[in-house]
């Protein structure tokens, strides 16, 4: 075991939300770590608290019990060294692609400098949107909008990228294409990625490790290392080992659902 400080560490995390009609236990006894530049997918049924993991990591909410650490430091407030990609692109409809990508700078500091613009242009190229910088989000397809969402999350050059079912609103083909795009971006500039999904295939194809969560109250029931060679691509989808992983995880999830 490496002695390096993990990028993300959850120690006996419990999360209880107060609702209108009482309390709701979202997470129970979560212990996990994500190594630096590791790509971890979190898989589980809807409403099992997967998104809560992301919001705990980013410091948007505090755990009811236990501690969350990022690079060895307890998370006590929102962190701006973490990029978040949401399920929907949620871009600003009045701002161009370029303005949406540099929005974190404008929003945090109130101004966008020339170097921010330059960074924005580099990111536009990196997510494959050359020539679309001046377009409005409504003029783009869903996949392209989510590329803008990824570029915006990368803008602050975060060490950690949190992705909350980022491709689930896309059609199957675009979804697969975006998965490979993400791997390409990630391999060109490694980041620690926590990727929430309910697609087994997507989790296996993308991740170094898949965490499987149970239904509410969510806890981790499986921690599976995916030993598929990188770089992964269309060939990986046809790999025998990939099918074994998918089969095993599907069995696990279906057994739990039964």
């Amino acid at each position: 075991m490496s002695t390096a400080v993990p990028a993300i560490r959850f120690s006996s995390i419990g999360q209880v939300f107060r609702t209108g009609s009482g309390t709701l236990e979202a997470l129970r006894g979560i212990d996990m770590t994500v190594g630096r530049h590791e790509f971890v997918a979190v898989l589980g049924p809807s409403g099992c608290g997967k998104s809560t993991l992301l919001r705990l990591t980013s410091g948007l909410i505090r755990p009811t019990s236990g501690t969350v650490e990022v690079f060895g430091h307890p998370v006590s407030e929102p962190r701006d060294d973490i990029g978040i990609v949401f399920q929907k692109p949620t871009l600003l409809p009045w701002a161009t692609v370029e303005d949406n990508i540099v929005f974190p700078a404008r929003h945090k500091t109130g101004r966008v400098g020339g170097d921010d613009r330059e960074k924005g242009r580099v990111l536009i190229a990196r997510v494959g949107l050359q020539g679309f910088g001046k377009q409005l989000p409504a003029e783009l397809s869903g996949g392209m909008q989510q590329r803008v969402g990824i570029a915006r999350a990368l803008f602050m050059n975060p060490d950690i990228l949190l992705m909350d079912e980022p491709f689930s609103a896309l059609d199957a083909l675009t979804r697969e294409e975006m998965g490979f795009e993400l791997l390409r971006i990630w391999e060109a500039q490694p980041k620690t990625v926590m990727f929430i999904t309910h697609s087994i295939g997507e989790a296996v194809l993308l991740a170094d490790r898949v965490l499987v969560m149970s239904e509410r109250p969510g806890h981790i029931v499986e921690n599976l290392r995916i030993e598929l060679p990188r770089p992964r691509g269309i060939d990986t989808s046809n790999n025998k080992a990939m099918h074994d992983y998918v089969g095993y995880l599907r069995g696990l999830l279906l057994k739990r659902a039964a």
């Binding site: 980013s58 407030e77 973490i82 978040i84 949401f86 949620t90 929003h107």
Partner: peptide, 14 residues
């Protein structure tokens, strides 16, 4: 306003 954008704003500590 989409809650995601408010979360983005808060995570930027704007």
């Amino acid at each position: 306003t989409p809650p995601e954008l408010i979360e983005l704003s808060r995570s930027l500590r704007a």
